[in-house]
Design a protein around this nucleic acid. Structure first.
Lengths: 204, 204
DNA sequence: GTACCTATGTTGACATCGACAACATCGATG
DNA sequence: CATCGATGTTGTCGATGTCAACATAGGTAC
C-alpha cells in the first residue's frame, strides 16, 4: 500500500513498483473483473506513467501470470500447513480440499485469475515464470492418489484424482464466482461446514 | 454459415447478420479465447462494416450473452432428452450430469462463455435476454433434490444440490478448459466412461 | 570524488477496439 | 409510387497495449 520506504527522490523511481502494481492489479480486478484490468489504470493508481509497468512485466498477460503465481504460492503454503501432521491419507486429502476451498473464498480475485481463460497456457517458458501452479496440482494428485484404498490399479488412482479435483475445484469455483446463495457462505464457519459436508460426499 | 438465402442485392443488407455474427463469435473465441472476441473482427469476418453489429447487439457483452444463452438452451434441450423416460431419481440426476459434461466437451466455447467472468451478472434485465440460464440451473436443483433419500430435511437437500453441482460443474469445467490429460478425454467413449466413473463417486 | 552504466521511469506515437452520431439503402406498407 | 422503419456504412472519439527514444538516479570502477 504505502509507497516503499525509500521512494527515491520522492518522485522518480518508485522503489517497489512491481509489488505496487501487483496490488493495484488485484484491486482493479476486484472492482472490474479480470477483463477490466488495464496496465494504464494500474499505472495511474500507483502514480507512475503509462509505460512504467513495462519495466517489470513484458505485457499484460505477464502481470496476470504474476498474480496467478502469487495465488498458487499462497495456496501451496496454506495446503501444506493444513496437511502437516495429519497421517491418514483420506484426512490429508480432505484437509487439502478444505484449504483449497477456503483459499477460493478468501482470495476470490487470485483464484479467478489462477484459472482464468486469459492466462497464457502453460508451456515450457511460462512454467519458468510461474512455478507454483505445477506444484499445487502435483500436491493434489499425490494426496488423491494416496487416499484411494491400497491395491487399486494406477488407472483408477488417476480417476480418483480427477474425481477429487473435480469436486474440490467445482465447489471452489462456485464459491469464488459467487454462484452460491450468500447465506450459505456468508461467514467462514458456515462456509467451512458446508465445504466439509460436500467433500464428505466423495467416496473414493 | 453460408449467407442466408436472399442476401438482399448481394451487398447491402446481409439477411441473417445476427446469426452470422453469433457463429463468427464462436469461431473467434475458439481461436483467441473470450478475451479475444472483438465486434470489429466478427464484423470483418462476415463481411459487414465495423458498426453493423450494433444493429443486433447493444454492445459486446450482449453478443457474449447471446452466445451463452444459445449454449444454455442447447444444454437444457439435451438434458431433458437424456432424462426423458428415466424414473429413478438418482439415475435422472446422473443422466443430467453426464449430459452436462458431454455438453462441455462438445461445446467448449459455449460452455466457457456460459460461465465466463465477462458475462454481465444476471439481474432482472439480463434474465429477460437470457432465459435459459435460469432454467438449466433449476432443472439441476430439482434433479438433485429429488435424488436424495426421502425424509431428509430441506437444508440437507440444498446441500446435496450444491454437492452434485460442484462435482458435475467441476469436471465439466476441467474438460472444457482442457485441463485433463488428453488421452483421458480424447474420444467420446472414453470421456463418457470417465464421467460416469467420476459421477458414481458422489454419494448423496 | 568523478565519470560512466544500468535499472527504472517518462513522453510520444501508432494501431486496434468499443461506442456513438449522421447518413445511405432496401423492402414492406399505405 | 411515396414514405418509413429496419438494417448497413462512414466518420469520429476516447481508451488501451505496445514500442521507441529519451531522462534520471544510484551504484561501481577508477
Amino acid at each position: 500500500m504505502a509507497r516503499a520506504q525509500r521512494a527515491t527522490s520522492e518522485t522518480y523511481h518508485h522503489g517497489d513498483l512491481r509489488n505496487a502494481l501487483l496490488a493495484a492489479a488485484v484491486e482493479l480486478i476486484a472492482e472490474r473483473g479480470v477483463a477490466g484490468l488495464s496496465l494504464r489504470e494500474a499505472a495511474r493508481r500507483v502514480g507512475v506513467s503509462h509505460a512504467a509497468p513495462y519495466r517489470h512485466f513484458p505485457d499484460r498477460a505477464a502481470l496476470l501470470l504474476a498474480v496467478a503465481d502469487e495465488g498458487f504460492g499462497r495456496l501451496v503454503e496454506a495446503a501444506r500447513a493444513a496437511m502437516d501432521g495429519i497421517e491418514d491419507p483420506s484426512e490429508r486429502l480432505r484437509a487439502y480440499g478444505l484449504e483449497y476451498i477456503r483459499f477460493a473464498r478468501r482470495n476470490p480475485v487470485h483464484f479467478r485469475v489462477m484459472f482464468s481463460e486469459e492466462l497464457p497456457k502453460p508451456d515450457a517458458d511460462t512454467t519458468d515464470r510461474a512455478p507454483f501452479a505445477t506444484v499445487a496440482l502435483e500436491l493434489l494428485f499425490e494426496a488423491a492418489g494416496a487416499a484411494v484404498r491400497p491395491g487399486v490399479d494406477a488407472e483408477d488412482r488417476a480417476r480418483a484424482a480427477v474425481a477429487a479435483w473435480s469436486m474440490t475445484h467445482g465447489f471452489a469455483t462456485l464459491v469464488a464466482d459467487g454462484r452460491l446463495p450468500d447465506e450459505l457462505v456468508a461467514d467462514e464457519r458456515a462456509a467451512d461446514e458446508l465445504a466439509r459436508w460436500v467433500l464428505l460426499r466423495l467416496s473414493l
